[in-house]
Design a protein around this nucleic acid. Structure first.
Length: 495
RNA sequence: CGGGGUGUAGCGCAGUUGGUAGCGUACUACGUUCGGGACGUAGGGGCCGGAAGUUCGAGUCUUCUCACCCCGACCA
């Protein structure tokens, strides 16, 4: 019955990358723009982002943060103030050099007016530490001004060589939190708090099990003392970082000369953190849960949680079905469930079934003449594709239970997948074999040096995704060099 | 920036030895359908990426050019 899907969507097991691209396009999430490397996020894709924003924003507010907005443009000179930071981003910056156009005198449309050259070029933000800390300098005088707990929802630009919808685009949307603290301890605590917020969000809303950990020096954010990340496993065995939190120490405070007077009257540099999560996590949502029928959205982030589809032969039937459908819709909505009643006459029921499956709507309700007659409805859950016919009076309880079960079930499935694809490896041959042939997370010993990490990357394309917080102390030998190691770290190929 | 590939209808593609462009899908209208992407009939839609050249004649041959895609170096 479902085989025909192959006609519409590339098979996931035959070509994962193509399946992903097809899915993003066909589920109407986004498309490539005429601007190289940039995407158009379409209404359905943006609706998912809005759910993500709304959820995270609440979590940020609940942890004491407030929103603000800083400029898109950053004076070039700001960038050179923190040496490591420049190094990290210099190769992928877009630069504004002029501020005016004029008619081309040779008659070929318009041109950049060479007389309108900016005295100092402006960098389009790849991240906002510098412009924000330039403001913080003016805001912070005393310990009474701290902590400063600010988040912004923004777009950023990183000039990427190779892009993929949601996973890596030249411009993307994200939130970036930037906090300032009086003590090192407080800043470290904030860094930890926010990685925990991300992990909570990933697991309980995205239904995505993650590994929390430290980044190795090679993988660390440019300008950070320490970077924490959450890493998730995709269905093709590759890792995807879905959120990061940085302890910036006093690096930016020193670069922008942000000092405050502490309780004892002493002048101190401010301690900082920054943390971010981007539209990339929509890619994670897709790659972690979706199947050959299309998207599978966790109910807590699905723009439409329930779709009602009428099945009818004539206007009379449609009218009586619509009565039932509207009643059910408002009953569900009263219970905080988002419902779409799709009574468009322009598509057949079968077409709609497939379309909403493609779009990952968690629960579908079908109502036909037989249902009206028997006071029943048919429900179908997206995760297992199971259908049930139930008494219409039971709809609200049944749908609530289904949404709850789907949310739990896809998390459970993803957790099992992660467990089955996490390998504890002690031999290099086995490491290579798993990376080449099976994929997944590999927990292995590492001698702690960047050189070794680099060699492993060269030979296998696998990198250290993180050094898990919960990795127990354990004597072992580095998988590559055989040198002593105190704990296992997480290796994987990644996006 | 290196290596490979593709540009023909909205999308996906075919187009032979050069002879004036077609298929699938989508679109429009009407009818039959409607419980898993319906069917029939009739229609509309093209500067064959761009420029120059060869030729009586170019989607097809030559040269130049532009754009995009894939593989590498960089990355959330």
């Amino acid at each position: 019955m479902y085989q025909k899907m192959a006609k519409y969507l590339t098979n996931r097991d035959e070509n994962y990358a193509q399946w992903y691209n097809d899915l993003v396009i066909k589920a109407d999430l986004a498309e490539n723009s005429v601007v190289r490397g940039c995407m158009v996020i379409k209404p359905y894709g943006y609706a998912i982002w809005e759910k993500i924003q709304a959820t995270l924003d609440k979590m940020f507010k609940a942890t004491g943060h407030v929103n603000a907005y800083f400029p898109l443009f950053i004076p070039k000179s700001f960038f050179s103030k923190e040496a490591k930071h420049v190094e990290g981003f210099a190769k992928e910056c877009a630069i504004v050099t002029h501020y005016r156009l004029k008619n081309d005198e040779t008659g070929n449309g318009i041109m950049v007016d060479p007389s309108a050259k900016l005295e100092e070029e402006l960098i389009i933000r790849p991240t906002s530490e510098t412009i924000i800390w330039n403001s913080y300098k003016n805001w912070i005088r005393s310990y009474r001004d701290l902590p400063l707990l600010i988040n912004q929802w923004a777009n950023v630009v990183r000039w990427e060589m190779r892009t993929r919808l949601f996973l890596r685009t030249t411009e993307f949307l994200w939130q970036e939190g930037h906090t300032a603290h009086a003590t090192r301890e407080e800043a470290v605590e904030e860094t930890e708090r926010m990685i925990n917020v991300y992990a909570d969000f990933a697991e309980n809303y995205m239904a995505l099990p993650v590994v929390k950990g430290y980044k190795s020096e090679n993988e660390r954010f440019a300008g950070a003392i320490d970077t924490y990340a959450i890493e998730a496993l995709m269905q093709d065995g590759k890792g995807l970082q879905t959120g990061t939190s940085h302890f910036l120490g006093q690096n930016f405070a020193k670069a922008f000369d942000v000092q405050f007077t502490d309780k004892t009257g002493k002048l101190e540099y401010v301690w900082a953190t920054s943390w971010g999560l981007s539209t990339r996590c929509i890619g994670a949502l897709i790659m972690a849960h979706a199947d050959n029928h299309g998207l599978v959205l966790p109910p807590l982030l699905a723009p439409i949680q329930v779709v009602i589809i009428p099945i009818y032969k004539n206007a009379e039937q449609l009218n009586s079905i619509t009565d039932t459908a509207k009643r059910i819709k408002s009953d569900l909505e009263e219970n905080g469930i988002s419902v779409k009643y799709d009574d468009r006459d322009t598509n057949k029921p079968g077409w709609k079934f497939s379309d909403y499956e493609l779009k990952g709507v968690p629960v579908r309700i079908a109502i036909g003449p037989r249902d009206v007659e028997n006071n029943t409805i048919e429900t179908a859950r997206r995760d297992t594709l199971e259908k049930e016919t139930i008494q219409a009076s039971r709809t609200v309880d049944h749908v609530k239970r289904l949404l709850d079960e789907i949310q739990k079930n896809i998390f459970r499935k993803a957790s099992e997948f992660k467990k089955e694809n996490t390998w504890y490896v002690d031999k290099w041959d086995e490491f290579v074999d798993i990376i080449e042939n099976r994929g997944g997370f590999i927990m292995a010993h590492w001698d702690g040096t960047g050189a070794t990490e680099e060699k492993i990357k060269e030979e296998t394309k696998a990198t250290i995704r993180c050094i898990p917080f919960n990795s127990p102390e354990e004597d072992g030998k580095c998988i590559y060099t055989g040198k002593p190691s105190a704990r296992r770290v997480l290796f994987a190929r990644s996006y």
